[in-house]
Write a protein that binds this DNA or RNA. Structure first.
Length: 225
DNA sequence: GCGACAG
DNA sequence: ATCTTGTCGC
């Protein structure tokens, strides 16, 4: 059965291990950034994880892996990582080229107990991660201006847990937060540097498309096979 | 008690 | 997350 109290205790424990400072360095160019996305098949029976590795700053797709495993947990707000990380770990193992920085779909520390999936996965893999969510889980923020690029702090219990970013004109904002081994400011900077006119930063946009077999993926296949 | 609630 | 075409607005 499912013991929420146990999972909560595990989150509180792991949250204490999350590093919110930049303890990594990257080359100015030609290093690898990864993007992830998780989807479901067969009425949710199967969990499908996709990881796409891009070269920065050309955003050329270097590799991508898709892993499928039986779903073991239902979706419970605040406990998303336990449902999705197993498939993500498998996709990660399949990678020949491991990225130095990973954009994860979902929250980083912008979580009630400061352990969203980006932080959880970052800890498990021991790599720098950034949480890129399309919706808010917790926290409050001032009204976000309409101008592209505007961003305001996401606050919870008197502390900043991330940023709300207007990544594209007339689009809903993104909720950016540090996952692991990175600061909120650096997380925001990297997301901004990976925006190419779409609402989602390139790593996440590609992972989204590859995981759901969208047009961008079809285009990629057509040009690479 | 009531509402909110990543994917 | 997922089921799904066209359509309205900038």
């Amino acid at each position: 059965m499912l013991d929420i109290q146990q999972l909560k205790a595990e989150q509180l424990s792991k949250a204490g291990q999350v590093i919110l400072s930049d303890d990594f360095s990257l080359p100015e160019t030609n290093f690898l950034i990864g993007g992830t996305d998780v989807g479901f098949e067969q009425d949710g029976e199967i969990t499908r994880a996709a990881i796409v590795v891009l070269k920065y700053p050309s955003f050329e797709v270097m590799e991508y892996q898709i892993a499928r495993i039986p779903t073991t947990m239902p979706y419970i707000p605040g406990y998303l990582s336990f449902r999705e990380y197993p498939a993500l770990l498998k996709a990660w193992q399949q990678l020949k080229q491991k990225p130095q920085l990973l954009f994860v779909d979902g929250q980083g520390v912008a979580h009630p107990r400061r352990l969203g999936i980006a932080s959880h996965l970052g800890l498990l893999l021991d790599i720098p991660t950034i949480g890129v969510a399309k919706n808010r889980l917790c926290g409050k923020h001032d009204i976000l201006p309409e101008e592209v690029g505007s961003h305001v702090a996401l606050i919870d219990k008197q502390e900043q847990i991330g940023w709300v970013l207007r990544s594209k004109k007339r689009c809903n904002p993104l909720y950016i937060s540090a996952g692991h081994r990175i600061s909120h400011n650096t997380a925001l900077n990297w997301v901004e540097k990976c925006l190419k006119g779409y609402r989602l930063p390139e790593p996440t946009r590609f992972a989204d498309a590859f995981a759901s077999n969208k047009k961008l993926f079809q285009t990629y296949l057509a040009e690479n096979s």
